[in-house]
């Protein structure tokens, strides 16, 4: 039987690499994100999992509900989700 268990050292190496990558990338761009517009955030986030959904597909009220659904599913911050909602409801 070959050993297929989760190797502890593998896990530690992967987690460390992950943490290092995180630290390396984070400070470089610290100032930018807050200024991103709703349409830029829509472009960055809304095509990551599925094809683009157009603002004209829904009414304002339904977009509010769907953006709550997507905020939870796609793990968006509240600020980003609200900006995207503003973009969707001003372009439908």
């Amino acid at each position: 039987m070959k050993d297929n268990t989760i190797n502890k050292s593998t896990l530690i190496i992967i987690s460390t690499a992950f943490a290092l990558l995180l630290c390396a990338a984070a400070p470089a761009t610290a100032a930018e994100t807050k200024g991103k517009s709703g349409s830029a955030l829509y472009a960055d986030n809304c095509g990551r999992c599925h094809s683009e959904r157009y603002p004209t597909e829904r009414t304002d009220k339904h977009w509010k509900t769907i953006m709550m659904h997507m905020r939870v599913r796609a793990q968006l911050t509240g600020t980003d989700a609200n900006k995207i909602l503003e973009y969707l409801t001003s372009s439908n």
Binding site: A26, P27, A30, E32, V72, T77
Partner: peptide, 15 residues
């Protein structure tokens, strides 16, 4: 419990 923590222009998500 799930969500996101923005770090600069990048984002860490957790669940």
């Amino acid at each position: 419990a799930r969500g996101a923590i923005p770090i600069g222009n990048t984002r860490v998500t957790y669940a």
